[in-house]
């Protein structure tokens, strides 16, 4: 019962009921799991939502987490996408303090990272950047010298490549 700790990405389909997020969050906290990010929104089926959960732990710990998650009555399926081919992406909005003369330099960096300038103020800009988390981390690192005023990240959303949907996933057994 050991192993090395790493980041896992789980995708769960859940009923869109009041309190379902509380149930999931309560289980995380009670069992001592540390959630790096959690993204939740509508999915292809009305009445259901899909959650993407990024959690750190050993494979055994995360397996236990997956089973506990699946035990919640309103959780329909759970799938661990960590070791399967999957698209994983995240969006960040960053407000950077920038003088008019520094704008072109920052815009250059943003375009290299395929970021988009979505708002320009007198002495600030908001950049929207979408990609894998590591790319966003590197972008933030590069623009740190300008002074990041405000940052918000959505957390990872993920989807397995190919035709198998995560409705087929399950932690049973």
């Amino acid at each position: 019962m050991n192993g090395t700790s790493r980041s896992h990405t789980l995708v769960a389909m859940v009923a869109d009921h009041p309190g379902v997020l509380t149930r999931v969050a309560s289980m995380f906290r009670r069992r001592g799991f540390n959630i790096a990010s959690l993204a939740v929104g509508n999915c292809e089926e009305p009445g259901y939502s899909r959650m993407t959960i990024e959690v750190r732990g050993t494979d055994d710990e995360v397996k236990q987490f997956e089973k506990q998650l699946y035990k919640l009555v309103e959780v329909i399926t759970v799938r661990d996408l960590t070791d399967v081919s999957a698209v994983q992406t995240e969006t960040a909005l960053v407000r950077v303090r920038v003088s008019p003369e520094d704008r072109p330099g920052l815009a250059d960096i943003a375009s290299i990272f395929r970021g988009e300038i979505v708002d320009v103020g007198r002495d600030s800009m908001i950049i929207q950047i979408t990609g894998v988390s590591e790319t966003i981390d590197r972008f933030l690192d590069v623009i740190a010298e300008y002074g990041i005023d405000e940052l918000t990240r959505t957390g990872i959303v993920a989807m397995a490549r190919g035709t198998k949907t995560s409705r087929n996933g399950s932690a049973r057994g």
């Binding site: 236990q64 089973k67 932690a171 057994g173």
Partner: peptide, 17 residues
Amino acid sequence: VDPAEIGKVLDTEVPIV
């Protein structure tokens, strides 16, 4: 009957839910 109990404490050679 509870899959979450299997392998929780002991390494299990034959898990049966």
